[in-house]
Simulated scan of single mutants.
Amino acid sequence: MTSNREPNAVPLTRRLLSPRRWTPPPAPADEGRTPTTRPLAVARPIASGGHGPEDVIFDGQGSLLTGLADGRIVRVDPATGACTVVGDTGGRPLGLEPSADGSVLVCDHDRGLLRMSADGSVEVLVDTVAGRPLTFASNVVEGPDRTIWFTVSTRRWDLEHYLGDVIEHSCTGLLVRRDPDGTVTVLRDDLKFANGLVLAPDASHLLVAETTGYRVSRYWLTGPKAGTGEPFVENLAGMPDNMSLGSDGLVWVAIAAPRNALLDRLLPLPGFLRTMVWNLPEAIRPKATPIAWVMAFGLDGRLVHDLRADDGSYGFVTSVAEYDGTVVAGSLHEDDLVVLSL
């Protein structure tokens, strides 16, 4: 995988961490299980035609869109499994957003924010932010007036070494706006691994997943609180990844992994301890607990669905989307998408 790292940057496998201390809230009891918690059941797999369907989203016609590790964007019929290649970004596509004109907005880890037309042609919309190359663009939404908002997970690490940011807790995630005239504005530059993004139906606010903050935050776009943020849901028992707004009006949240107790203990302590952990051989570093986990919240923050499975049927869920009662999940580390049974 290519990378637009800063010139002469130290290779990430040898980078010295600049750890930030943070005292996370105590993890919820019983791993956050509530009466809402139920087993996650995979109804059937859907072949993506490649590897690593990191984000999955429904378009306006009920088809699925996902991006693969080899750069392709594919459209999949969830009923038949028929898969059509829309185009190739030439990089590593992550978050996607279907546009009203039939194009697809793409957060490409290597190339920045792109627009892919129906014929597969690619236009680069943003490739620099605040004078630096845009890398690790994560998720994107578009407003009715074609204003675009997108997240950048971290300014210090790439996708291959994302665990470096988890351990360092760099808090360098961005929330960025691109106006219809092309003006780019950084709205937040201190997010804890900014990830999934949802625009409220009335365009009054954004919801932003902060993976290493164990929370989803609300950023107000209109009204007396415009330009300010507040919690939407916080102190989650897991790490939220991509999000989407379903046709059911729920905010569907992929939970990539549960919180790690060792990491929670290390985060408030002197940073050299985390540097030691980062420099351990990869085989013995702390690893995410294998699980398939999705949640869904009402727009008032009320938990509606909490679906979990640790049977190995699927794992490391990085995206989930709902349309007319069909719920589909995707994963950075799997080949298939999966339809979930509710």
Score class of each variant (00 low, 15 high):
253 V>H: 04
287 K>Q: 15
233 V>P: 01
326 T>F: 11
176 V>A: 06
174 L>Y: 06
209 A>D: 06
187 L>P: 10
248 D>T: 05
309 A>T: 02
253 V>E: 02
286 P>M: 09
171 C>N: 11
16 L>E: 15
163 L>S: 12
167 I>L: 13
50 G>Y: 05
309 A>D: 01
133 P>N: 06
252 W>E: 12
74 V>R: 02
214 Y>Q: 06
290 P>Y: 06
206 L>D: 00
322 E>H: 06
72 R>V: 08
1 M>C: 13
97 E>Q: 09
152 V>W: 05
158 D>L: 07
289 T>C: 11
8 N>M: 12
196 G>A: 08
188 R>A: 00
235 N>W: 01
105 L>C: 07
336 D>M: 05
105 L>F: 08
232 F>W: 03
227 G>M: 08
266 L>N: 03
80 T>R: 09
339 V>S: 04
27 A>M: 14
192 K>V: 06
262 L>V: 10
198 V>K: 02
49 G>D: 05
139 N>R: 08
322 E>L: 07
227 G>V: 07
243 M>K: 00
288 A>S: 11
5 R>M: 15
337 L>K: 05
60 G>A: 13
12 L>P: 03
328 V>E: 03
139 N>D: 14
338 V>M: 02
79 A>L: 13
18 S>Q: 15
138 S>V: 03
219 Y>K: 03
22 W>I: 14
213 G>L: 07
32 G>P: 04
71 G>H: 10
106 V>D: 02
50 G>D: 11
150 F>M: 10
140 V>G: 01
12 L>H: 07
23 T>Y: 00
237 A>Y: 07
27 A>R: 15
133 P>R: 09
295 M>K: 13
268 P>H: 00
105 L>K: 01
57 I>K: 11
310 D>Q: 06
123 E>W: 00
111 R>I: 12
132 R>K: 14
121 S>E: 11
224 P>C: 01
231 P>C: 08
170 S>E: 02
172 T>Y: 03
107 C>K: 02
254 A>G: 05
276 M>F: 11
244 S>Y: 00
305 H>F: 08
140 V>K: 00
266 L>Q: 05
50 G>I: 09
305 H>Y: 12
270 P>R: 08
136 F>S: 10
233 V>G: 02
62 G>I: 09
339 V>A: 04
106 V>L: 02
19 P>R: 07
144 P>E: 15
133 P>C: 02
272 F>Y: 15
185 T>V: 09
302 R>L: 11
171 C>V: 09
258 P>V: 12
199 L>P: 01
35 P>C: 01
127 D>G: 08
